[in-house]
Nucleic acid binder design. Structure first.
Length: 266
DNA sequence: AAAGGATACAACCGCGGATCG
DNA sequence: GCGATCCGCGGTTGTATCCTT
């Protein structure tokens, strides 16, 4: 069964937005707020479909958007996040304040892909192009990370999820470029009580009730395991959850004064 | 200076998941 | 439980601008 069109195509404008249309949209959203995109065009007096309005607002008109060139810092962050998340542009955008998924996607396709290719790296799998691709893996580079911290982190990840094989940790060449073959599985539940006790004593990150998926911004995932957290809220109310320290260290995001813990996912 | 190609990015399209009645 | 509807995402396209010849 096909979907109904999102709007009456014959009565809508397409193509580039005019200044007047922009102004109408901004004025309407300022007065009434975002949301209800389907009815917004009519209410705002725009001959556009709701999706078009939403896109225009989110990608171009929102006042908190950061226009202009991407910094090297942002470049590297995008590469790291892409190596971990793949083409999940909205999740990546959620870690870059003032940037939109569309902008990052375009930037990736026009700049970063080329940059990686010029470095001899396959932008899809984040591996050297001439390296035999026996297995798709997620590569994460901690260029500025402390190696001991990384080793601790690997042990912590193992303890948390119980799914990284011992030889993955001990037998890898000891180099700062961490190449984790991530195996995401239902979290390790057995020690939750013990960890809850630790939390009360130490406040340690390992005791956080927020699951790994939520740390990655995969809220409301069916694999989410923190819905039974002590406050009863779990991921469903975690729109403003700060990334816990472990996760953002793990992602290599704690860099150069940018505190990504404060960022929201959309 | 003009033509053609390359690049950048705004906008569109179709799909899937979430939500509602 | 099911269909209808809405929203958001990722891929793709269209077009303006820049660059090269």
């Amino acid at each position: 069964m096909g979907r109904l069109p999102c709007c009456e195509k014959s009565h809508t404008n397409k193509g580039a937005w005019t200044k007047e249309e922009d102004e109408s949209l901004i004025a309407y959203i300022k007065a009434h707020g975002e949301g209800c995109w389907r009815s917004l065009p009519k209410a705002a007096g725009l001959l556009r479909c709701g999706k078009s309005c939403r896109l225009r607002w989110i990608n171009y008109l929102r006042p908190d958007l950061k226009r202009g060139n991407f910094t090297d810092e942002e470049d590297e962050l995008i590469i790291k996040l892409h190596s971990l998340l793949g083409n999940k542009w909205s999740l990546i955008a959620g870690r870059l304040p003032g940037r939109t998924d569309n902008e990052i996607k375009n930037y990736w396709n026009t700049h970063i892909r080329r940059k990686l290719l010029s470095r001899g790296i396959d932008p899809t799998i984040h591996r050297a192009i001439n390296e035999p691709n026996t297995q798709k893996v997620t590569s994460i580079t901690f260029a500025s990370g402390n190696y001991k911290d990384i080793e601790d982190e690997k042990m912590n990840i193992k303890a948390e999820f119980g799914t990284i094989k011992e030889d993955d940790i001990s037998s890898r060449p000891q180099c700062p470029d961490l190449n984790l073959e991530l195996r995401i599985s239902p979290p390790y539940q057995q020690n939750q009580q013990k960890r809850a006790l630790e939390q009360s004593n130490t406040g340690s990150w390992r005791t956080s009730p927020i699951c790994f998926k939520c740390n990655l911004g995969l809220k409301k995932s069916k694999d989410c395991s923190c819905s039974d957290s002590s406050n009863g809220n779990g991921c469903s109310s975690s729109r403003n959850i700060s990334m816990n320290i472990a996760a953002y260290d793990f992602l290599g995001l704690k860099t150069n004064g940018l505190d990504y813990r404060t960022l929201e996912t959309k």
